[in-house]
Amino acid sequence: MSHGRDKSPETDDTWHELIANDPLADFFVGPSEQEHVVTSYGGDPFTGGQRLGREMAELLVFWVGDEEYAIDILEIQELIKLPTVTQVPRTSESIIGIISLRGTIVPIVELSRMLRLGTRPVSRTTRVLVLRGDGDPIGLVVDRVTSVVRIERESIEPVPRTMQTEVGDLLSGVGRVDDRLLIVLDLSAIMALLEHPK
């Protein structure tokens, strides 16, 4: 499959370009996407928030198991379908292997395992979120990507006590959009866990 664009990883893609140009944008699925997928977005995401006077966060929303999770869209380099993964022995169990993404070796992490939700079946909607990872990309496998939402950063609440489980420190907060509950992931915690597995 051709990616219609040829950008080196360090090119500073803006998120809307990323989604608009990615052929996988067609694969966005979700019941509420009509309301929330931002299809036309004017202006730069870095300054857009300030125009409104409040700092807005753009989050990519996806499902893992029965929960809706979200990641700051600026952390995401691209979305890809799950390619053939080469298993790597002697690594932590949430790493299912590596892929070569245009020549760069990228570890693929099964998010459900990292979140102690067990293994999820691969389906038509399974996607890999390729995170920038401070220049060393990481692939996160998720069940399906549904939408992009914009919410005020301030409205992201701390993780409720009931969710403070052993994976609690991988979560940075909970955002509410209408009656949906989005669990926002803490990428620096995920990166730290990858770098120093427990």
Partner: peptide
């Protein structure tokens, strides 16, 4: 190729390589 920052010390693995059939 190096396995990168996240998998830099897998014992017994020196790195990865690509074969002709886009296999890593």
């Amino acid at each position: 190729k190096s396995l990168g920052r996240w998998l830099r010390n897998v014992p017994g693995i020196a790195g990865a390589a690509e074969l002709g059939n886009s296999q890593t």
